[in-house]
Design a protein around this nucleic acid. Sequence first.
DNA 1: CTGTTAGCGCATTCAA
DNA 2: TTGAATGCGCTAACAG
Lengths: 319, 319
Amino acid sequence: MATQKSIADKLGLSISLVSRVLSGKAKEIGVAEETIKKVLDEAKRTNYTPNSAALSLRGVKTHTLGVITYDFEDPYFGIILGELHKIAKQRKFTLILAGSYQRDEDTLDLSAFAKHNIEGLIIVGSDRKKDWYENFNQKSIPSVQIGFTTDKIGANICLDESLSANLIASYLHKQKTESATLFFNHSLSHETFKTQHIKALTENGINILEDVICDGSISSVKSGIKQLKQLPDVIIAGDDIMATKIIRSLHELNIKVPEDVKVFGFDNISHARNFIPSLTTLNPPIKEMIQTAFDLVSSPSISKETLRFTPELISRESA
Amino acid sequence: MATQKSIADKLGLSISLVSRVLSGKAKEIGVAEETIKKVLDEAKRTNYTPNSAALSLRGVKTHTLGVITYDFEDPYFGIILGELHKIAKQRKFTLILAGSYQRDEDTLDLSAFAKHNIEGLIIVGSDRKKDWYENFNQKSIPSVQIGFTTDKIGANICLDESLSANLIASYLHKQKTESATLFFNHSLSHETFKTQHIKALTENGINILEDVICDGSISSVKSGIKQLKQLPDVIIAGDDIMATKIIRSLHELNIKVPEDVKVFGFDNISHARNFIPSLTTLNPPIKEMIQTAFDLVSSPSISKETLRFTPELISRESA
DNA sequence: CTGTTAGCGCATTCAA
DNA sequence: TTGAATGCGCTAACAG
């Protein structure tokens, strides 16, 4: 591997001179044009890459961001990661899968942070209180969470929950919908939205028949459907995947969507358009959200603000 | 931050002694029990974490693996990453998103490799010839690819394509299927399987009516369906997502699945069970594959073998 | 059983 | 305009 020393030796110069040239401080300090050129040429010829271990040991910025997530199976995770990676590449950042805090464990492995000198943290997904907050907070690393949280440790990017609920409620209102049933799970994002849905639906004169809580499994959804006392005009699901399972359960019980019941989703997963019936849902401006998240976390002076984004209603067959 | 020096100073010991204890070589060398305890206690108290920049500068193993992918939108990507991360955590490895080689660019950003001293590379997804091979190969880093490739640079984990095709063909044969139409795209994995499908179907006396090539878009699938000269007994799709789009297109044309045509998928995406009709497909043993991949890439003596796994046929409604 | 020293690759201060 | 020396945190060879 080419090092500054190998270049210096070859050219009969001192290491410090080579260092100045290579770190771009040559002009500023006043190095001879010719010397600069020699060093640069030799560096190129030998394929010199600065050793980041040495840099980071010296306290130079590592341009490394940590990504942690709650749920690798989130249908959006791949897309979010792809977007993050695209921006990271442009800006010469490296992304590290710094850890995850799974449902069952409540811990986060922070060793990767220390190990690679992470400069910022991007949290993908919604969550509640973070037990690892304390450890983490010791090293004041800027962070952004993409999703809802009850325990903000840095900046926060999320959807405007009130606006989202209003979008849906007024859409349903225009369709002369009179009654609704809610299907949500216990996740924070579901609960956040549910509160807003109840408010918005009520304001739009839509009667909430029932409020079903179920985990995401198809069996739990199906039994939720079976136990319905009355079929509403519309079922509002916490997300598209749940909507999908609801429609599937209804199908198995021979209830037609949207003829007998309408179903409203949330997320606009890639699949939503091809489902039968295609899903009416809310489409979050993912790219803008990610872009903003990256800007926030990589900016030198990060604020702890919460930025809310507005989704777009996609009207399709299911509602 | 706690360093060995800070511990040594506090305890009035030498740095090297602290180093020996902390790197677990104390016993071996013969350090006083009491000293060991003192150091360990102080390390714990001050939350000591070894600085990896320093370690890697000294040439100590970094326990860092790079992950690159072809396609972040692959529905399996999140799951694969989750599995990889779980194993990595157990074994104290760190995962870096080392780069991606997108369809449009044909390049790989290798700076992350150099930057973090990556010890192994995991390639997620199928691909063809790698143009970055040459750069990469200079530093002989062990690598594993999970997926098909024409240009093996290390170990290779994939499905047994011949066996998979036979599984499907004999299943269809038992159902008295007589004719089939193929829907595949230009990706390597599709093409690999298609060849095997043609062979296996023919051997099972199933007549291949047409062989449609289309990119994944719903419009291209739909126009492919419209242009069909004749409706076969079964349509075999390159993957579940394509199967989904095929069924959707058939639905829009008022053709019933499986009554009028059967549709066979591939992958068993999480969605397959809830689709209407639920997808009959092949389920790859993802966890075992990932586990094996990790074992291979993190083992000191990696072989360049290709390991083939057998999927399981999941019979549901669509075929 | 423990301490001293050197050096990994680099940026920087001080000196020339 | 250039070079020598220092130190970031750590391990290992060598010396007590």
